[in-house]
């Protein structure tokens, strides 16, 4: 396949960025999207030019490190995959592909397509855990958990923290990310003890960091590579309401 790429390039967080046009040739349809960018980067290095910086790590769709806003969609045109699991067979020979970083005030650009997602870590640090320390805990089977609740908690906990939800949202809201963590613990007996403080602290941190509000367009769910359901947002709203009236 021969492709034209329109890629966002930006030297550093403060620099003015711009789109640059690149051409790649003879790309195999079985090649992954990031491997296609590897090929482009190798050709740039051959020409003693700076390669395009993008975040990536596991390349098997689980670490949440890769991002990229491809042709106007987070993680590109395929459904339920991260960019690293997107394959070139989803494009056509001769296509022009536009590649941008995640777009959100809370995720500033570091360089080119690399972004700073420390805000997500800060939200988790605000309360996205059960405050147990090592040792002195009860036997695992002394806490029976309804299978359905355990499965729903697992659905929520499958979030990889990539930030596609924020990127997809017109308000750059982090509601789906926060709701997934709040839900996981709200569904489990171990998490109930701190549930009220947790939801309050996490929501307050989310607001403080400049994420937008949720206006129920559900773009987050549609673009989530792990199919995290917006029902988690409803659950979080319920938790938040209860925490604030009791």
């Amino acid at each position: 396949m021969d492709l034209t790429l329109e890629i966002w390039r930006q030297e550093n967080p403060k620099a003015k960025g711009k789109f640059e046009t690149y051409k790649v040739q003879n790309i195999s349809p079985d090649c992954s999207f990031l491997e296609m960018l590897d090929i482009l980067n190798e050709s740039l290095i051959d020409k003693v030019q700076l390669p395009i910086n993008f975040d990536h790590d596991c390349r098997e769709g689980i670490c949440g490190m890769c991002s990229l806003y491809i042709n106007g969609r987070p993680h590109g045109p395929d459904n339920e995959v991260t960019t690293c699991q997107l394959h070139m067979r989803k494009f056509k020979d001769g296509d022009t592909i536009t590649i941008e970083p995640w777009r959100s005030k809370a995720f500033p650009i570091i360089k080119d397509l690399m972004i700073n997602r420390n805000a997500f870590d800060q939200i988790i640090q605000a309360g996205g855990y059960i405050s147990v320390t090592t040792g002195g805990v009860p036997d695992a089977n002394s806490i029976p958990i309804n299978r359905n609740d355990a499965e729903l908690a697992m659905d929520a906990s499958a979030c990889i923290g990539c930030g596609a939800c924020v990127s997809a949202c017109k308000n750059a809201s982090a509601m789906l990310f926060v709701a997934a963590k709040v839900s996981q613990f709200a569904l489990l007996p171990q998490g109930k003890i701190e549930a009220k403080d947790r939801v309050k602290a996490m929501v307050a941190k989310m607001d403080e960091l400049g994420f937008g509000n949720c206006s129920n367009t559900f773009a987050c769910e549609a673009e989530c590579p792990k199919k995290i359901s917006v029902s988690n947002i409803a659950r979080m709203n319920r938790e938040f309401l209860c925490a604030n009236i009791s």
Partner: peptide, 23 residues
């Protein structure tokens, strides 16, 4: 090894369970 499972369950790790609610 057993303590690890206890620790993880206490942290809210959603391990697979059977219909009785046990691991």
């Amino acid at each position: 090894s057993g303590s690890i499972i206890d620790q993880c369950v206490a942290q809210g790790v959603p391990f697979a369970r059977d219909y009785s609610g046990l691991l």
